[in-house]
Amino acid sequence: MALHNRVSATELKERLALETFKRVTISFYQYAKITDPKAFRDQLYTTLNNLGTFGRIYVANEGINAQISVPEHNFEAFKDALYGVDFLNGIRLNIAVDDDGKSFYVLKIKVRDKIVADGIEDPTFDMANRGKYLDAKSFNELTNDPDTVIVDMRNHYEFEVGHFENAIEVPSDTFREQLPMAVDMLSEQKDKNIIMYCTGGIRCEKASAYMLHHGFKNVFHLEGGIIEYTNKAKEQGLPVKFKGKNFVFDDRLGERISDDVISHCHQCGEPCDAHTNCANDGCHLLFIQCESCASKYDACCSEECKEVHALPLEEQVELRKGVVKGLMFNKSRRRSIQQ
């Protein structure tokens, strides 16, 4: 059996569109010592592929990080297979809050140096010494304490469309930069309660360990991140303190948590929180665009990209040669796309 996909993206998307069953979008992670990530990866690919699983999974010596979709009728079989792995037995599964079942169309499992690129080279750093978990109820209670600082450990483009009330942004678009920045920003508040949070828990868990490593005492991290918090808060009838959209790294690009729209179209400035990628494949910039500007610019980020996108495909391909794709929107690029 092939341990990688061999079918074109176009055909895979067509197959997904024709599916008559529901899918469940799930994310999970676990910090654990995996002695042979390649062998584990291959075994996992076989198991999940047989269950019709799509998604993106990273495996490393330090553990696993996964965002996937599973056919609803295979969900229990998926859980049984996952829990059959010793270090994954009973692992928390974050179920998507706002799910259309079309989050992924192919299964990709990659071996990486780390499941979260952190830039940490200090051999004395120990993930076993991490902050205390906070569930939804405890999070709400502790955030009411004036001696509590809430720190968002996500990227700028994630924070922009949604975040917790009174949360501090660490203004960077890479986690490796955010870690030392968070230490510097909070250096005068080491005696306060520091709560770290992120999308599903993987980044804030490592961030909590990093803060403790640098002398902070009262460090907490939100169990299961925004996804688990929202699900539990709604189940328990608690106030949901997250405002706006939760950015997610799949084809949905976001799941709505509250009706608040706290960001603006990057082209006209009107209230909007719909992320999209520039339709010019030579750019593919991630940015926020309202429906009016999508029509005006043909789903592109600028007049220049609109002109390129209107060219015959052969000319576009010629122009793209040597161009790096996959640019992510950040503060440094914001003014360059506003009209």
Rank of each mutant, 00 (worst) to 15 (best):
132 K>V: 07
132 K>D: 10
134 L>N: 12
135 D>M: 13
136 A>L: 01
136 A>K: 11
137 K>V: 04
137 K>G: 10
138 S>K: 15
139 F>P: 04
140 N>Q: 04
141 E>Y: 02
142 L>A: 02
143 T>R: 15
146 P>K: 13
146 P>C: 12
148 T>H: 10
150 I>D: 11
151 V>A: 05
151 V>L: 13
151 V>W: 13
154 R>S: 09
156 H>R: 09
157 Y>H: 02
158 E>H: 03
158 E>Q: 00
159 F>A: 01
159 F>N: 06
159 F>H: 12
159 F>I: 05
161 V>I: 15
161 V>Y: 14
162 G>V: 10
166 N>G: 01
167 A>I: 07
167 A>Q: 04
169 E>R: 00
169 E>F: 04
170 V>H: 07
170 V>A: 04
170 V>L: 07
170 V>N: 09
173 D>E: 13
174 T>V: 13
174 T>Q: 15
175 F>A: 05
176 R>S: 13
177 E>A: 12
178 Q>K: 10
179 L>F: 00
179 L>C: 00
180 P>S: 06
181 M>S: 07
181 M>P: 02
183 V>G: 06
183 V>P: 02
183 V>E: 08
184 D>P: 08
185 M>P: 04
185 M>S: 07
186 L>T: 14
186 L>A: 13
187 S>Q: 02
187 S>D: 09
188 E>Y: 13
188 E>T: 09
189 Q>Y: 05
189 Q>W: 00
189 Q>K: 10
190 K>T: 14
191 D>H: 15
192 K>C: 03
193 N>L: 11
193 N>E: 11
194 I>A: 04
194 I>V: 10
195 I>G: 10
196 M>G: 14
196 M>C: 15
196 M>I: 00
198 C>S: 14
198 C>F: 04
198 C>V: 03
198 C>P: 02
199 T>D: 03
199 T>K: 06
202 I>M: 07
203 R>P: 14
204 C>Y: 05
204 C>D: 10
204 C>P: 04
207 A>H: 06
208 S>W: 07
208 S>P: 09
209 A>T: 02
210 Y>G: 07
211 M>D: 05
213 H>G: 10
214 H>R: 08
214 H>P: 07
214 H>N: 11
217 K>Y: 05
218 N>E: 08
220 F>Y: 15
220 F>K: 15
222 L>A: 02
222 L>T: 15
223 E>M: 08
224 G>L: 06
224 G>W: 07
224 G>E: 00
225 G>P: 05
226 I>F: 01
